[in-house]
Design a protein around this nucleic acid. Structure first.
Lengths: 346, 346
DNA sequence: TCTATAGGGACTATTTAGGTCCCGAAAAAC
DNA sequence: GTTTTTCGGGACCTAAATAGTCCCTATAGA
C-alpha cells in the first residue's frame, strides 16, 4: 500500500466516521472479538466474555453476526476463525490504524524523537498482553519488507524480539543474507536468547546464519581469548558490518537484574539515573553513557553506523528507555504499541 | 483515483461489509437524506419524510446525527447542507458505487453492448427523478476529464444533456477547444436546445463556440440553400471533425412525437420496429436504419468515426434504444443510472 | 397581519437488546 | 469407561432504546 493509496482510503474512512459515527465502536468491538478468537481458538462464548469484559449475551449476538458472515465457524468444541476471517482481520488491522488516526501519532512521535520512522500498533500492551503478538506481526512484516540481497542482519534477544520471530510468516526471500545474533547469551530463558531467535528467523526465511557461543556479560580477559577463536571471530566480523539490526529496547533496571548485577551496582545505576540499556551500555535520559559492560555484541560505534536499526518495544514502562536510544542513530525505525506511543508524547 | 487505488478501497469496504453488515443500510439512508437536503435546501423534517417514505421520527433522529457531525445546519427555516456535508457527499458517491458493486455491473454492461466504457450511477431514475442530477454530475465530470487541447466538441439537446450542462462545474480548462451543437433546433423547449446547451457549456468552460441557426428537421432544398450560408457552412465543417460528442439517447417513438411527425409516419415507424433515434436516423433493434431525416447535424458516417462519443441516458425505457446505438461505434462511453443498467442486463 | 412550515419538547407505545438460567451434547480429564 | 467441564443454543423476562404522536412556539413569505 503506497502513501497515496492510504490517503485515499483514509478519506473514505474519515467520511464514514462522520456520516456513521456508531460504526467506529461496532468495528472495533468485532475486530477485538475476531482477533481474540484467532488467538484462542477453539474458544467458547464464556471465555471470550471474560477476556473482553463484555457480557456473554452481547458476545453471543456479535458472534452470531460473525458466523452469519462466515468469518468464524461455531462447533461444539468452540469457535474457530475461517480463512475469510483471517483475511478480514488483516484488512481490519489497517482499518483500525486509520480509524484511530495512528498515522498522525506516528508522525508526532517520529518528530519528537527525531528519528526516521515510527510504526504504532493499535492497542494498549499494558491492558492486553496479546498486543505483543500484534507488534510481532507488524514488526516481522516491516523487517521482511526492508531486507535486500547480500544484507547482514543482526538480532538481539528478549521476549519482544522472540515474538517477532514467532509471528514471522515463512517465506523464501531468495536473498543471499547472513543472520547473526547481535549479542551473547543473557538470562536463563532459552527461548529469548539472541542465538535462538537468530536460528528461528533464519529457518523461517531460509537463510544462512551463525551463532555466538558466549555469554553477553564477560570479563575482559575472557573476551580477548574468546575473540581469538576463528568461529567467534567470524561472527564478530559479521556483527561489525550489520545492515539491519532488529533489537528490543530494555529498561536499565530490568536489564541489570536479568544480567545478574550486584545490588550495589544496581543501586549505583539508579543513582546515576540510568534509564536504558542497549548493547551493553547503560544510558541516562540525555543519552549519556553511564556504565559500559564488556560485550562481544554490537558496539556503540557499530550501532551508530547501522543503516537500518529496527527497535521494537511494548508497554508504557519503556517510554523513558526509548528516549536516549533514539538519540544514538537517527535512522532508527521504532515499532511500538499505542499505549507506549501516548506515553512518549506526554 | 486510479484503478489500483479503487481496488484497495474496495477491499476495505468489502471487509467492512462483512464485519459490520448493518452499516450498509445506515450509510445508504444517511446518504439519501443528505443528498435530498442538498437538493431541496432549506427543507424541513416533514417534507424529507414524505420524499423518502421514512417516518418523521426516524428522519429526526438521523438528521440530528448529521447535525452533530456538522454535515448540515438546522435553522428555523429548514435544514441546509454545510461545506463539509458537500465534500462528504462527494466521497459517499464513490463509496456507494463500491458498496453496490457497480463496477462489476459496469463491466457486464460494457461486455454485453460491446462498447468501450460504461459508468453506472447508483439509484433508480424511474423511482427518483433526482437521479438525473446525479447522472449530470457524473457525466459532466467524465466529459471534462477527457477534454484536451484543440478538440472539437459536439453536444446534442434534450433534458438529459441539459442536466449535464447544468451540473457542470465552472472551470477554465485553458484548452483551445471549439464547442458546436451537433444538431439543429428541435421541439419547443428553449432550455433543451442543442444551441442553448452548447452556449451554456462553452460559458462554463470559458471556450469559444458556434451556434447552428436552423431547425433539425428540414427539407432537402432548404438544407442545400442554407448550407451555402458561410456561417452555417463553418459550423457544419466543425461538426464533421468532432472529437468528442456528448449526446442523449432517444426512443424512436418519443423523438418522432417531439419532431412533430404525422401520425401515419409514427405508425409506420412502429410497424418497422423502430426503437431508437439518433442524428436524424431511426433504427430497429438490430441497428438497421429504418428512416432517415434530412439533418444538418452529425451524419451517421461522421458519428462512426468519432473518437469519443459519450452517450447519456436515464430510465429503464431507454434500454431498447441503447442497443442499436451501441452497435454503431464501439468507442462509445455510456453513462446511465442503475435501473437502466439492470434493464439492459435483462 | 395571517398562514404555512420550520424545529423542538414531551409523553406513550412498541420493539429491541441484554441479563439470567437451564439443557443436552461433546470434549477433556480422570 | 465414567465423570466433569465446557461448549452452543433455547427460553424467558426486564430494562432500555426506538419510534409514533401531538402540541407548541418561532419565523419566513404572502
Amino acid at each position: 500500500m503506497t502513501e497515496k493509496e492510504e490517503f485515499c482510503v483514509a478519506d473514505f474512512i474519515q467520511t464514514q466516521k462522520k456520516i456513521a459515527p456508531e460504526m467506529v465502536k461496532l468495528l472495533m468491538d468485532r475486530y477485538h472479538i475476531l482477533r481474540l478468537i484467532s488467538y484462542h481458538q477453539p474458544i467458547g462464548r464464556r471465555s471470550l466474555s471474560a477476556f473482553l469484559q463484555i457480557s456473554e449475551r452481547v458476545i453471543r449476538k456479535e458472534v452470531n453476526i460473525l458466523k452469519d458472515q462466515n468469518l468464524i465457524e461455531i462447533k461444539a468444541e468452540g469457535m474457530n476463525i475461517t480463512e475469510s476471517g483471517y483475511t478480514s482481520l488483516e484488512v481490519l488491522r489497517s482499518f483500525i490504524h486509520i480509524l484511530k488516526n495512528l498515522n498522525s501519532i506516528e508522525e508526532e512521535v517520529a518528530q519528537k524523537l527525531e528519528i526516521k520512522k515510527v510504526i504504532v500498533v493499535p492497542g494498549l500492551y499494558d491492558e492486553d498482553e496479546f498486543i505483543l503478538r500484534e507488534i510481532g506481526k507488524v514488526a516481522s512484516k516491516y523487517f521482511k519488507s526492508i531486507l535486500k540481497d547480500h544484507m547482514i542482519v543482526g538480532v538481539t534477544g528478549g521476549t519482544t524480539i522472540s515474538m517477532v520471530a514467532d509471528e514471522m510468516i515463512e517465506e523464501d526471500l531468495k536473498h543471499h543474507m547472513m543472520i547473526v545474533p547481535a549479542r551473547g547469551g543473557l538470562g536463563k530463558n532459552a527461548e529469548n536468547q539472541a542465538n535462538h531467535i537468530t536460528a528461528k528467523i533464519a529457518r523461517k526465511l531460509n537463510c544462512p546464519y551463525e551463532l555466538l557461543h558466549m555469554p553477553d556479560n564477560i570479563s575482559k580477559d575472557l573476551l580477548e581469548s574468546l575473540s581469538k577463536d576463528p568461529n567467534t571471530k567470524e561472527v564478530v566480523d559479521y556483527i561489525k558490518q550489520i545492515h539491519v539490526l532488529l533489537f528490543g529496547i530494555g529498561r536499565a533496571d530490568k536489564m541489570a537484574k536479568r544480567r545478574g548485577l550486584s545490588n550495589e551496582k544496581i543501586e549505583e545505576l539508579n543513582k546515576k539515573c540510568a534509564v536504558a540499556e542497549a548493547f551493553g551500555y547503560y544510558f541516562n535520559l540525555k543519552g549519556k553513557i553511564i556504565e559500559e559492560v564488556n560485550s562481544v555484541g554490537v558496539s556503540l560505534q557499530t550501532y551508530k553506523n547501522i543503516k537500518n536499526p529496527i527497535g521494537v518495544a511494548a508497554g508504557k514502562e519503556k517510554a523513558l528507555a526509548i528516549m536516549p536510544i533514539s538519540k544514538l542513530n537517527t535512522n532508527l525505525t521504532l515499532i511500538i504499541d499505542e499505549g507506549l506511543a501516548q506515553e512518549i508524547l506526554k
